[in-house]
Simulated assay, not measured.
Amino acid sequence: MIRGIRGATTADRDDEKEILLSTESLLKEMILHNNISAENVASVFISATHDITSVFPAKALRGFEEWKYVPVMCMQELDVPHGLSRCIRVMIHYNTSTHQSDIKHIYMKNAVSLRPDLKK
């Protein structure tokens, strides 16, 4: 069965290095805490708010050699009033037998405010 694993983080500024480091850190935590093997990933969607323009956050995943063939897509997040700025969201579609309630969704930096109900 395919499950969605959510994650989000923020970047301190719209800077390529900062965005890639923030995204890489989030992805590593998502992979680690959910024991994800790239071979079992169907796809990854990465969105960024309108104030991130210096780099595609998906570039961070391209540095993971074993993820070379995983389909990844970047998109722009909706520009909602009072939304979290410089936010990067990730959705990994993963083939797993893990129960939905046991999936570990990862929220880092200022993005912890997005889903306090999932904080364990």
Score class of each variant (00 low, 15 high):
54 S>R: 12
57 P>W: 09
78 L>I: 08
87 C>G: 00
51 D>L: 14
100 Q>P: 05
94 Y>P: 01
81 P>Q: 11
96 T>K: 02
89 R>N: 02
80 V>K: 08
72 V>N: 00
85 S>A: 12
82 H>S: 05
87 C>V: 08
77 E>W: 08
67 W>S: 09
80 V>M: 11
71 P>E: 07
56 F>V: 03
52 I>N: 00
95 N>M: 04
51 D>F: 03
76 Q>K: 07
70 V>I: 02
52 I>D: 01
100 Q>G: 04
80 V>G: 03
80 V>R: 04
74 C>A: 09
79 D>W: 07
68 K>H: 09
63 G>E: 09
84 L>W: 00
54 S>V: 08
78 L>S: 10
71 P>C: 11
92 I>W: 00
74 C>K: 04
79 D>M: 05
101 S>T: 14
78 L>C: 02
67 W>N: 03
93 H>A: 07
57 P>Y: 06
95 N>K: 06
52 I>M: 00
86 R>C: 06
94 Y>C: 08
96 T>Y: 03
65 E>G: 11
71 P>G: 05
66 E>C: 04
83 G>C: 12
73 M>V: 12
85 S>F: 09
92 I>Q: 00
60 A>H: 04
78 L>H: 04
67 W>Y: 15
77 E>R: 13
80 V>L: 12
53 T>K: 15
78 L>N: 13
56 F>E: 15
62 R>S: 12
79 D>V: 06
73 M>H: 13
75 M>P: 04
59 K>L: 14
74 C>H: 08
59 K>M: 14
97 S>H: 10
56 F>P: 13
52 I>F: 01
98 T>F: 07
51 D>A: 09
89 R>Q: 03
98 T>W: 02
69 Y>K: 14
98 T>I: 12
72 V>T: 00
69 Y>V: 07
51 D>K: 03
62 R>I: 05
81 P>V: 08
61 L>C: 00
88 I>Y: 05
60 A>D: 04
58 A>T: 15
69 Y>S: 11
52 I>T: 00
59 K>D: 13
93 H>N: 03
53 T>Q: 14
61 L>F: 11
83 G>K: 04
97 S>C: 09
63 G>S: 12
60 A>I: 02
55 V>Q: 02
55 V>Y: 05
98 T>L: 14
73 M>N: 10
73 M>W: 05
93 H>K: 05
61 L>T: 01
96 T>F: 01
99 H>W: 03
56 F>N: 15
94 Y>H: 10
63 G>T: 04
69 Y>F: 13
72 V>L: 09
68 K>V: 10
54 S>D: 10
59 K>T: 14
64 F>W: 15
93 H>Q: 02
84 L>H: 05
57 P>E: 11
62 R>N: 14
65 E>K: 15
55 V>S: 06
78 L>A: 13
96 T>G: 01
98 T>D: 06
51 D>P: 06
99 H>L: 14
88 I>L: 05
83 G>M: 07
79 D>A: 09
71 P>N: 03
95 N>A: 07
